[in-house]
Amino acid sequence: MTPTPLIEVRNLHKTFGLRPALRGVSLSVAKGEWLTLFGPNGAGKTTLINVLATLTRPTRGEVRLQGHPLTSDWTDARRYIGLVGHRSFLYPDLTAAENLHFFARLYDVSAPEKRVRALAETVGLAERLQDPVRTFSRGMVQRLTIARALLHDPLILLLDEPYTGLDAAASEWLSDLLADMVRQGRTILMATHNLEHGLAFCHRAVILRRGRLVFEARRDDLSPDEWRAVYRQHVGEQR
């Protein structure tokens, strides 16, 4: 028997005014799978992630989490989801510790002190916990954003261009961290423009274009050259 997918999206539509952002997207992600979402600007990647993160309600279609449809009350489903989006969601006037404690309490994290300290060490910010976020560099804010998204130990991690602002060493650190999370059974759905980062550890990749899923394959089914050709065909030249 095929196991129930952790995330299942069926015929998803989302329209902003008259402009369709998603046009009948269907996909599923298994528990412990890393799915990368490629697509040019305006393809609908962020909209899809926002719908899965419960920030935006779909116009039509269905989203299921562990087999249960996400209907009007999404409050509990949010406990399973961590999001690293375009914005940090952090408060610049609060310290890193205050930000993490605030979100830990919103998510009812047990032993928040211990969890905040452990995550600060994981993201390499233990020495800066008492500093206001406004004094952080872009890369440090991104590290803290990742810590914020992991605070409640989410089952699903949604990442929208998570490598933005990270230097080469920090990018490598993030890739290792994400690969570790998948090994621990976490599920990752990551939207990116970067072919190298997107394919490094993923199990499967899909390409979204003008709100439609136009390509889907397991990473190992295609050689790196074939992936580059597919990417060029649907997305454009790698920047």
């Binding site: 949010r78 989801i81 375009h86 914005r87 940090s88 969601f89 952090l90 408060y91 979100f103 919103l106």
Partner: peptide, 10 residues
């Protein structure tokens, strides 16, 4: 700050 989305996500 984009922080309203952070609250909506909780």
């Amino acid at each position: 700050q984009g922080s309203l989305e952070g609250l909506m996500l909780a």
